[in-house]
């Protein structure tokens, strides 16, 4: 906006005649862009029931437009996001929420990934520990360590020194 003015002033001063200068600012499509942004944020969390898999923000289906208008009315009358989502869930069920509610049937959904991560890390560490102990118990014979050494150096040379010559057989 300010840039626009600067250009306008500059081009007037310099005698330029750019069309853009005299064109008027376009109006936002929505009467209240700020409200519209909130409406969109909420609409993006709601599923269009008649579409294949779209939010009511993206869909042009009749029902989606109706529901978006409903959201706009409710935002306009000061309803919170929670109230609006509850309103929709009351009518269409949890299916309408793209962010599933947290309740007993969805505990697994929400906690599952993090439980898996913890389990994965625990398994990894315990595995590595066990492994280290098991292998440390069996020192290689001189002959074997010699062979391992030659094997590793062969590997390093053919692998284009991929391990950066950092291999130090212990």
């Amino acid at each position: 906006m300010r840039l626009h003015l600067v250009i306008a002033v500059l081009s007037l001063v310099l005698g330029f005649n750019a069309i853009a200068v005299f064109a008027k600012e376009a109006q936002p499509l929505a009467a209240d862009p700020q409200l519209e942004k909130r409406v969109n944020d909420i609409a993006k969390e709601l599923r269009c029931l008649v579409c294949q898999n779209q939010t009511i923000a993206d869909s042009h289906a009749d029902l989606a437009i109706d529901l978006k208008n409903q959201v706009r009315d409710m935002v306009g009358s000061g309803k919170t996001q929670k109230e609006i989502v509850d309103y929709m869930v009351q009518r269409y069920g949890d299916f309408v929420r793209y962010r599933p509610p947290i309740k007993p049937t969805t505990y697994l959904l929400w906690a599952g990934p993090f439980i898996l991560l913890v389990v994965g890390v625990v398994l990894l560490i315990s595995n590595l520990r066990k492994r280290k102990l098991a292998i440390a118990d069996t020192p290689l014979s001189a002959d074997e360590s010699e062979r391992l050494k030659s094997l590793l150096s062969a590997d390093v040379s053919t692998a284009g020194k991929n391990s950066g010559g950092e291999v130090k057989p212990s």
Binding site: E45, R47, G93, F95, R99, P100, L108, L109
Partner: peptide, 26 residues
């Protein structure tokens, strides 16, 4: 996690525990 989110609506539905949607917010 992606598999869980993708199949979860199917799992609940198959168990008769209701229909949910799992979308981008999740």
């Amino acid at each position: 996690a992606v598999l869980l989110g993708t199949l979860y609506p199917l799992l609940l539905d198959a168990l008769g525990m209701g229909k949910i949607s799992v979308g981008p917010p999740y």
